[in-house]
Design a protein around this nucleic acid. Structure first.
Lengths: 158, 158
DNA sequence: TATTGTTATACTCTATAACTATA
DNA sequence: TATAGTTATAGAGTATAACAATA
């Protein structure tokens, strides 16, 4: 079933907004000579020390892809591999202090960008927008069983 | 200056919404075994026949990157290079009929996804959300001199 | 001389398949 | 046998630098 006529500009608005936000993130990430996937790696490690396999699941990648990803991040001193205490086959991946600093800084600057974007609206409208967006996301999460509070924002279920 | 306390959940909501929308697009694109940049290429060609250099500007890429991009799209029969009538150095890039069909289908399915997402809100709230989003984008465009009506959604100015 | 486009080269990111070390 | 992780290989996507053809 095709989209109805009346929703066309609603569709375009949300679409363009999502592109604007993604571009803001992209800009902050490239400021640190990182890629989106690299910052996503640092992001999921902020509150986890997963095995390579668990990391692959979190990021929605094959484990071989994660091997290379972690290799490159480790070469830059952003993460480290430590032996898993209970399984001699496995490694745990951990953020280093510099890695954590970068993750925090990028997240902060990006949040500031969004705040600045929102500051274009008066307080009341901002509140209304926020409520509607939350409702949209809640409805979607209910319909699809997605966990909105997982900061990984990965396209797969844990 | 860091973000104010009260805007935190506003920031998260918009951020998550943008990720949800990008994932919807990503899913529609991979259904056709294409990448985001390939569908963006087809998208900008829907109403243009640019030179390689102009295409590079539209997509925000180096011309050498566009050479490869167009090569691969051409190999799949989605675009074609035609000689520029006035300059024997230049080529114009044009969508083929199959390329246009795919661009139209992906755009349509994606628009339907957004419509479905929005259908989670009653009509009045949808209208309000749309107005607020438009206002946000208009304010941003005014501040930055961006053309919101350029479907390329490219991170650079024409 | 300057511009248009391609090519050579190098790197990141991704997946599949084969491998090793351990369980 | 099964699982955790790496490696080999292949391909897309990107940029820089060098180049040929044309302006």
């Amino acid at each position: 079933m095709p989209a109805s006529n009346q929703t066309l500009s609603e569709v375009d608005g949300l679409t363009q907004l999502s592109f604007v936000i993604q571009q803001m993130l992209e800009r902050r990430v490239t400021e640190h000579n990182l890629s989106l996937i690299q910052i996503r790696l640092l992001g999921v490690l902020r509150d986890r020390e997963p095995t390579m396999t668990a990391l692959a699941t979190l990021l929605g990648l094959d484990k071989s892809s994660v091997s290379g990803l972690v290799d490159r991040a480790q070469r830059r001193g952003l993460v480290e591999r430590i032996p898993a205490p209970d399984d001699r086959r496995a490694s745990l991946v951990r953020l280093t202090d510099p890695g954590r600093a970068i993750a925090t800084e990028v997240a902060g600057r990006f949040a500031d960008d969004i705040s600045a974007l929102l500051s274009g609206l008066p307080r009341g409208e901002r509140k209304t927008l926020s409520q509607l967006v939350s409702k949209l996301l809640t409805t979607l999460a209910t319909a699809q069983g997605v966990d909105l509070f997982d900061t990984a924002s990965s396209p797969n279920s844990p």
